[in-house]
Amino acid sequence: MIKKHNKAKAHKFGMVIDLDKCTGCGSCMVACMSENNVPFKENETNKKDSITWMHVYRLTNGKSFPDTEICYIPRPCMHCGGKGDHGHSPCVSVCPATATDYDYTTGIVSQIYTRCFGCRYCMAACPYHARYFNWWDPIWPSGMEKTLSPDVSPRMRGVVEKCSFCFHRYQAAKDTAYFEEREDITEDEYQTACAQACPANAIVFGDLNNSEHEVYKLVKPDPYHGGRPKEPKAFRLLERLGTNPKVYYISEREWVRKAGDNYVKGKEKDHKKHNTE
């Protein structure tokens, strides 16, 4: 029975965010922080040293009124599959102490706080700024430590942390499946906190290997190209770096899709072809 579990087809959990639906309300950021015991400071003015596993960026098309358009991009950890989608994510391959690894059964990049010794090499490696350093020990307002989630261990000063795709929820869902003697979990049993909190339903979460799942239907990942979306409206951030993220974005607006990657001037057309072929 045990062996059967491990031979079950590997999952590849991923996320699809519809940027045309996102209003930039920040519910995902709040839900993430409370779900994952993310520490905060009394004064969060300096955004570059405060921790937000899920971070909403704001970008504009750079045009003046009345043509100005705004788009918000929520950015969790991309759980990159790395070059060739072999699991050598930019951060995993550089960690000197194996404090982060790529789980081939779920496609999730872990971060083990008690193993991390805070060299911050992974932060330098991540082009998405998805990794955060605990510059301070967490200080919870009195009484708040009783409201922390027991499913997620709080972090100490001096270690790196990042989004885990709410892995503890996957564990809990699997526990239920074991109890009910089921082989596997269903799509709705494992959802991240941000996906559930999004009032606009902009965030969809599921298994990219499962053609029944909504995420698969939305982007149609191409397994022969590291999961590159076959759906023309979908894109991934910094596709050209070869990081092969598992977070996809969808937008009808071309300038938004273009903002997902860098272009050498005069060669935009090449890239468009490359993106939609």
């Binding site: 960690c95 000197p96 102490a97 194996t98 404090a99 193993r115 991390c116 010794f117 805070g118 060299c119 911050r120 350093f133 605990n134 100490m156 000063r157 001096g158 270690v159 790196v160």
Partner: peptide, 15 residues
């Protein structure tokens, strides 16, 4: 390093 007391991990748990 953020946790100097764990510096030896780089030798013991080397990647």
């Amino acid at each position: 390093i953020g946790q100097p007391l764990r510096g030896w991990f780089i030798f013991w748990h080397a990647n």
